[in-house]
């Protein structure tokens, strides 16, 4: 198996991260930057989940290995694979990255909500959500006399 096949997921993760970062850095629109940030954050989910996947695995909801469903799943495993890694019974994917990513997704939506709320307030205060125009407004304000408290 070539390197590309075994690391394909990681390559995709890198592409998605780059896309997200590029949007955040290059765009001047605050909303677009938040979208880029969301893309960037969600790519970490792909990263964690990718290395938690176990070939031939199933979701980490434990079943009775001797029961009908367990037997059926165990029977599906490739004998060569079983021999190579000495796995037995039902194979489960790693639950830990799933837990971590649940947390990360929640953090992502929290960030998105707060960021967009601030962007809405920027629009209300400055009349625009483009960084350049905000800077221009700020510069004009700074050149004028100090406002009263």
């Amino acid at each position: 198996m070539s390197w590309i096949a075994t690391h394909f997921n990681y390559v995709v993760v890198v592409i998605l991260m780059m896309a997200g970062l590029f949007i955040v850095f290059s765009s001047g629109n605050l909303i677009k930057r938040m979208i880029g940030l969301a893309l960037f954050q969600s790519s970490t989910a792909l990263f964690y989940i990718s290395f938690g996947k176990v070939s031939g695995g199933t979701a980490a909801i434990t079943l009775d290995a001797q029961g009908a469903e367990g037997q059926a799943l165990a029977a599906q495993l490739d004998p060569a694979y079983v021999a190579q890694f000495g796995v037995e019974g039902v194979v489960y994917s790693n639950p830990l990255p799933h837990v971590l990513i649940l947390t990360a997704i929640v953090v992502g939506v929290a960030t998105l909500a707060v960021g967009l709320a601030i962007a809405v307030r920027v629009r209300e205060s400055y009349g625009t959500v483009e960084s350049d125009e905000i800077d221009a407004v700020s510069r004009v304000a700074a050149e004028q006399a100090e406002p009263a408290p």
Partner: peptide
């Protein structure tokens, strides 16, 4: 990424220790 274990490897550190 070249230092990461292969995709789906059940014997990788991530899949064999705490998980």
């Amino acid at each position: 990424m070249s230092g990461l274990p292969d995709f789906g490897d059940p014997a990788s550190p991530a899949n064999s220790h705490v998980g």
